[in-house]
Design a protein around this nucleic acid. Sequence first.
RNA 1: GCGCCCGUAGCUCAGCGGAUAGAGCACUGGUCUUCGGAACCAGGGGUCGCGAGUUCGAAUCUCGCCGGGCGCGCCA
Length: 567
Amino acid sequence: MLTFPFSMRITDELANLLRTALAEAERSGQLPSAGAVQPTIERPQHPEHGDYSSSVALRLARTLRMAPMAIAERIAAAVPAHDAVAGVSVALPGFINFVLADDWLARQVDAIRTQGSTYGNVEIGGRKRIQVEFVSVNPTGDLHVGHARGAVIGSGLATLLDAAGFGVQREYYVNDGGNQMRTFVDTVYARYMQAAGHDVPLPELAYQGEGPQRLAEEILREDSGRLVPLPRDEAARQLLPVVLRKVLASIRADLEQLGVRYDNWFSEQGLLVDGTFDEAMRLLGERGYLVDREGARWFTSTRLGEDKDNVVVRSGGGGPTYFGTDIAYHYDKFIRRKFERVINVWGADHHGHVARMKAVVEALGVDPDRLTIILNQIVSFKQGALAVRFSKRKGQIVTVRELVDVVGPDACRYIFLSRSPDSQMEFDLELATKQSLDNPVFYVQYAHARIASVLRMAEERAVTWDDGDTSLLRHPLEMGLVRHILVLPDVVKLAAERLEPHHIPRYAEELARAFTHFYDARDECRILSSDPADLPVSKARLKLVDSARVALARCLSLMGMTAPDRM
RNA sequence: GCGCCCGUAGCUCAGCGGAUAGAGCACUGGUCUUCGGAACCAGGGGUCGCGAGUUCGAAUCUCGCCGGGCGCGCCA
């Protein structure tokens, strides 16, 4: 009898069984040699096809020149006994189906509870250093509502990669070195002087809205007009760090409200002052990817198959372009800080930047596959059937802060996380704020609160269940719940491998449903019974719902949501 | 014009080349006296945008077309 440590995913165990079976069938001459094969394990959609299945026989049919069913039968016959597996069968057109053993399933309940908040972790990252950079909006005002999606996807992805065993760093790239920042500071300066009673005109292309003005008035109040007598350039120079500090503090506070935190805030300006920019340019030059033309310096992307070259240093002493400093930034990520992988989460409007950025990384001598750029499509908002157009004047939601105030961080995160970044999603404000089970956010959290409530009630009735015997669990609803709980590690693995956090909320909903089905079978599977004879099975069921609590809480924490004990 | 993303049930969305394409909402009908009814069960509803191709097998891969979004700056 083969056994594996409980921390191993059941799908890996089944794949191993198939590998063993395949090797054995080849050794005994039942099957011709197939070479190296990685049997895949799927979860069938229909329960009559078992708990897990494999199409390995279908895939082998061609190379082995045999009928798929014959291959499946010979593999299935050679599958070694395993205490997790109650049955192996074959089905047309050539599937091998596995049914898990109830007693083995029941034993997993204690194993899951032992793992607690680490349940669902998988080891696919090997502690590899990976950076997730996201949001990175110019520090020129509040985060717009459109930035919330990238913030949630980026932070969700980072948490997921953590759980998958990567060494993750969350980073915000602060664009404090470019024209936009300068224009913003100039705008604040003009507003500052105006507030101090001086008729200083706004710069060309000044930032509109009341943001710069409010900021200017605040700074004026705090520094009592210290900058008024200074020459314009000097005043702007001194104003920049003050503006930056205030705007970043506001952005940071808004993101924290949304459950988003960073390990590092990285300054673009720093790349210029500490020589990183020059170093990156030197390397690119040495490798022959820079050319001076029309007074500017260009990166010759065309050498790497791009449509056109791109300016990295402007003509007329204009300094580096955004693209130029981004080269230095990626030089820093890969060559200075030696991240093995870098993930950038960008809005879809940065699409045009992707190909040349990959080209740059390649030009720096780094495998471009180490850079992944996730583009999230734009979000539109609606209120029930009505489209919402954002307009400050109408007093509608415009900033991330306002969105979080109205919808709440949990619902906000869940909704953004449950859609693939590729979808041009619609965010229904009405549904998101609905306090009912129409709202999947509440359905999942409600299941957790219900479990907490049952456990509280057990405590009130002085039922101790640490000694519960899970082998008493055998009802189909009990087994069904364990089956669902056991899927979490595979979901984490899949989501992390594919960098797709949206599988987590889908699974969480499925798990919540499995719990609710079990819970709702009041007659057949009552957890707390008034009949003393039911005490042993009550204790076993308390352990079962506690393991469901562990898995639900883990899902919620992976999504950066709270796991409420009461609602 | 070129490039990328999207098109799946009335709506919002899942779907790793595999079995009868799924979930929630909405709709229709039904269930339950104790653990949280903010519940549960059942049912109807699909040319997977259209057309070819590859494959034992295509919503999934390839090509073409249609529709929507985004991009193609010495902006970021």
